[in-house]
């Protein structure tokens, strides 16, 4: 069994209206040094797999087919064996 931690990031070329709006909040707080706020997604799940290679394959499939939209997002992940 493996624990997967996936980070999904919108590509830099894709506008992030949420990040922009949140950054306006920073200005309202009087924080004027905040730049380039981007809202990304962090997803955790377990993979019931005996070896790391096949777990990686499953995570890649899950990410590329469903969790991330390859047109606008990139993903990276870590896998840790659950003892």
């Amino acid at each position: 069994m493996f624990k997967a931690k996936v980070l999904i990031k919108r590509r830099p070329s894709i506008l992030d209206p949420q990040g922009k709006a949140v950054e306006k909040g920073a200005i309202l707080l009087g924080m004027n040094n905040i730049r380039d706020t981007r809202i990304n997604k962090y997803i955790e799940f377990s993979v019931d797999s005996a070896d790391k290679t096949s777990a990686e394959k499953e995570v890649n499939e899950y990410c590329s087919k469903l969790l991330a939209n390859p047109i606008m997002e990139d993903y990276e992940f870590t896998l840790e064996e659950i003892k």
Binding site: I14, L15, P17, Q18, A21, N69, I71, M72
Partner: peptide, 15 residues
């Protein structure tokens, strides 16, 4: 999302 039409949909600019 199904890739039948090209492009993606983002949140409205106004949020």
């Amino acid at each position: 999302e199904a890739g039948i039409l090209p492009g993606v949909m983002l949140k409205n600019k106004s949020l």
